[in-house]
Design a protein around this nucleic acid. Structure first.
Lengths: 343, 343
DNA sequence: AAATTATTTTTACGCGCGATAAGTTTTGAT
DNA sequence: ATCAAAACTTATCGCGCGTAAAAATAATTT
């Protein structure tokens, strides 16, 4: 295979029988050289495993091929899944995506942005922490680096937003629950970290009023990102002090619902829509584990693929537009109701 | 704040009243300069937000501060959690960790190693896919880059291995199940991707024999990494064709168990150790969701922290040893039995 | 205060490639 | 065969910093 070790592009150009600038052109865009030239280079690539030095490449380039993907909590399968889809699309498009996560910590988020800035990324897809984010730091970052927000919208930050339509989520679940049973109460954290939570609550109140029912919001205590634990503890307390005020519960998100279902099981409360069931539970997100809860969770699903595809294409356009759109577009995808056993 | 924008280290050295080589030394190791000098630089750092260009730094350094963390499937909360802990420790130690995942695809794994190589990392912590890995590619990589394996051991690959002791996992669960009830059958995939699965099966057989019971291994079909789905389908088929041959089931890992519990719930089969329960289920890993299954899962827990700490410190030592130990050490941490409701 | 040692400055080079300009060859259409 | 456009070669500069050696300065010891 590799008889001689190739040290740099000069040497590789030489063994390909070409000049360095031509080879350089090829690595920037293989289509930019003649087919016969391309063939020479690709033949040489099979004989020698040369790769341009990534640091030297980026040192002197105006625009790198680096893109950043930042999600608030990477150990949450929901974020891991969406980050993965985004990463995949960027790789296919010839970019070098890198994933970052502050794991819920605002100072870590700012730190990530700082070190991302020094990577001179062509662009960044950024799902902010939300309420806890350091707004000033984000604004400064977005002024320097073409950034598209996703999942959580912070008004005025980033050149565009791509996410899911919380109203679509909640109106569908409320409609379904009301139509097939009784009006739900709403189960959420008292001080949600994520701005989507507030929109969902507002959507719940509005939808209930439209259907002529009294909204009823149950706010449970708890800080941080251990939502399952918080949901379980909150549900336990409610169950131990007389139970839920209605026989249908709509959770703000699936992770809270997973905790709630766990508490119900523990207390021997049967959840589902069949006879012998004391409680119906529905939720939002279609978390990867929602299929496997007991009972399986009726929920409103994100269109993961659509969000990922659109986020990537929007960042693409932003990069090609030179880093700035005229106005800040917000793209919201509707949810898809997934009927399972819990409601 | 920043009156003048600092373009490079030369300018920053000038506003600090020092020469560039001294400033360079500081950024390589703040302790290597006099305290008064350090104070000057740090004072300048508060006035100007300068950061050395990451590409220029690494271009010419023998050893970068980059470290790679590779896990087989990052959307699995188990891997996400261990990767996170490792990442955290490296960051604290002044390294620049980057996470990668082939998401179960062997060619993606090789590709990751290739692009990692061009990052000239000081070292890599690598949890391989296992059976599916391209052994030749891994060997070539490890020859060039100081690598420590974790989670999955591949004999002869990498300079060291840090992981959990599968025998400790299984002997504890088997002992507990036998002592408090009946000898379990073993529930696993027919063709597991991960070498740990084979060790666990062997450990199960051995432990059963030592306790004087007949081992009984149930092999279920399924390919890929959708373990919950595979576990559920496998359990469904068993339940629909007469049920489990014993009233106690030990799963190879928690993700299969999550699927199995889901199938049991669906079929109305009550799982747990109390009266009225038809089946006891235990498992291994202490997956982040094992607390929230219905019933909550009795399992043998990895010592996540110990593995992460030891993996990082081993790679540290390897780097300081110049990339090679005399012999290949294997560190195995024992499991901790976590008693919950399922068995 | 002189001698020794530890730091810092000066000077200089190199890393590997991007970018550009001016000249040369190839291509493909007339 | 002619010629312009396209592609390639040659040559050269610069990016921002690491690194090394020698000279100058500061801190510590005797």
């Amino acid at each position: 295979m590799a008889q001689t070790k190739i040290r740099n592009m000069e040497e590789f150009a030489s063994v390909s029988g070409l000049s360095r600038p031509t080879v350089s052109k090829y690595f920037n865009d293989p289509e930019s050289v003649r087919a016969s030239t391309r063939a020479k280079i690709e033949a040489a690539l099979t004989r020698y495993d040369y790769r341009p030095n990534i640091f030297a490449i980026n040192q002197n380039r105006r625009l790198t091929k680096n893109v950043g993907i930042v999600v608030p909590y990477l150990t949450d399968p929901f974020f891991a899944e969406i980050a993965r889809k985004i990463e995949e699309r960027f790789s296919e498009a010839g970019f070098r995506p890198t994933m970052y996560s502050p794991y819920g910590q605002p100072d870590a988020e700012s730190e990530i942005l700082d070190s991302l800035r020094s990577l001179k990324p062509a662009g960044v897809l950024f799902a902010p922490l939300g309420r806890a984010s350091d707004r000033g730091a984000l604004e400064k970052f977005c002024a320097d680096v073409p950034t598209v927000l996703f999942d959580s919208n912070l008004e005025g930050i980033g050149e565009a937003f791509v996410g899911s339509d919380n109203f679509s989520f909640v109106s569908q679940t409320v409609e379904y629950l009301v139509r097939t049973g009784a009006p739900p109460c709403f189960f959420e954290m008292r001080t949600p970290a994520n701005p989507n939570a507030n929109k969902r609550r507002a959507a719940y109140v509005q939808a209930m009023q439209e259907f002529g029912h009294e909204p009823l919001v149950l706010k449970i205590d708890g800080e941080g990102w251990a939502f399952e634990e918080i949901g379980r503890e909150g549900a336990r307390r409610i169950l131990e002090s007389g139970g839920f005020p209605r026989d249908t519960v709509l959770c703000s998100n699936d992770r809270l619902a997973i905790g709630l279902l766990s508490a119900c099981y523990e207390k021997g409360l049967r959840v589902g829509r069949g006879e012998g069931c004391a409680l119906r539970v529905a939720s939002h997100d279609d978390h990867p584990f929602a299929k496997f809860t007991c009972p399986s969770l009726t929920t409103a699903a994100h269109d993961y693929d659509a969000v990922a595809i659109r986020a990537v294409s929007t960042l693409h356009e932003l990069i090609e537009a030179g880093g700035s759109f005229g106005r800040r577009d917000e793209t919201l995808f509707p949810a898809k109701l997934i009927l399972r056993s819990s409601a």
